[in-house]
C-alpha cells in the first residue's frame, strides 16, 4: 500500500466523518454548548485582583477546552459503533494507523473550531486581552489542540470496547493531559501579559513536542489495537 493510497483513504474517512457530523449534529453542538457553559461558569470566579486574572483565566480557558473537547472525542468514537460500522471498517484494507490519523484529524478540526468560538467569548467575559498577538494565539491554539487530539484519539481507541467508555476515557485522559494543560495555559498567560518572548517560545516547544510524541506513539500503537 503506497503513501498516496493511504492519504486518499485518510481523506475519504475524514470527509465521511465530517459529512456525518454535519448531518447528524451528534458531537459538535454538545461540545460548543458545554464549552460555553464551562466558560461562563468559570468566568464567575474571575473577580480576582487584576494580577491574578491572566493566569487564572488562561488555565480556565484550557480546562473548558479540555472538557468540551473530551465530549467531541468521545462522540467521534461512538459514531463509528452504530449499526456495526466499526466491524465494517475493520473489514477494509486499512491499517489501524490510517484510521488513527483520520480520527485524529476529525478531532483536531472539532477542537480548533471549538477554540475559535471559546477564545473570543473568553476574552470578552474575562477581559483577557489576547487580541494583541493573534498570530501567537493561533500557534498556541493549533499546537495545543493537536496534542489534545493526539492523546484523545489514542485513548478513545483504547476504551472503544468498554461498557462505560465515557467515564474511563476521562479517567485516563485527564492525567495524561496535565502537562499539556500546564504548558498551554502558561503560553496563553504570557500572551495575555504581553510577554511573547523566549519564555513563551519554550512553552510552545513543549506543546509541539507533546503533540508530535503522542501522535507518533498513536500511529505506531494503533496498529496493535486493530484486532478484536
Amino acid at each position: 500500500m503506497n503513501v498516496l493510497d493511504t492519504a486518499k483513504q485518510v481523506g475519504w474517512l475524514l470527509h465521511k466523518d465530517l459529512v456525518v457530523e454535519y448531518r447528524s449534529r451528534l458531537a459538535w453542538p454538545v461540545m460548543f454548548l458545554l464549552g460555553i457553559i464551562v466558560t461562563i461558569v468559570f468566568s464567575l470566579q474571575t473577580s480576582l485582583p487584576r494580577e491574578y486574572l491572566p493566569s487564572t483565566a488562561s488555565t480556565m480557558l484550557w480546562l473548558a477546552t479540555m472538557f468540551a473537547g473530551l465530549v467531541a472525542i468521545d462522540r467521534t468514537g461512538i459514531a463509528e459503533d452504530q449499526d456495526g460500522c466499526s466491524v465494517g471498517l475493520s473489514l477494509y484494507p486499512l491499517s489501524g494507523s490510517t484510521i488513527y490519523v483520520a480520527k485524529f484529524l476529525v478531532n483536531l478540526c472539532a477542537i480548533l473550531v471549538l477554540l475559535g468560538v471559546l477564545v473570543p467569548i473568553f476574552s470578552l467575559v474575562t477581559d483577557l486581552s489576547l487580541a494583541k498577538h493573534v498570530g501567537a494565539m493561533v500557534i498556541v491554539a493549533v499546537t495545543g489542540s493537536a496534542g489534545l487530539a493526539a492523546v484523545g484519539t489514542l485513548v478513545s481507541n483504547l476504551t472503544r470496547d468498554l461498557q462505560q467508555r465515557g467515564a474511563v476515557l476521562s479517567v485516563l485522559l485527564l492525567p495524561l493531559l496535565v502537562p499539556l494543560i500546564l504548558a498551554a495555559s502558561e503560553a496563553t498567560r504570557l500572551i495575555a501579559v504581553d510577554e511573547v518572548g523566549t519564555q513563551w517560545w519554550r512553552w510552545v516547544q513543549l506543546l509541539v513536542a507533546f503533540a508530535i510524541d503522542f501522535a507518533t506513539v498513536g500511529i505506531v500503537l494503533s496498529h496493535y489495537l486493530r484486532e478484536e
Binding site: 483504547l158 476504551t159 470496547d161 468498554l162 461498557q163 462505560q164 474511563v168 479517567v171 485516563l172 485527564l174 492525567p175 495524561l176 496535565v178
Partner: peptide
C-alpha cells in the same frame, strides 16, 4: 498523575 495512570490501568483492564 502517575498514581492516576496506574489506577486507570486496572479500570481499563477490568472492562475487557
Amino acid at each position: 498523575v502517575l498514581w492516576a495512570l496506574f489506577s486507570g490501568y486496572f479500570i481499563l483492564r477490568a472492562g475487557v
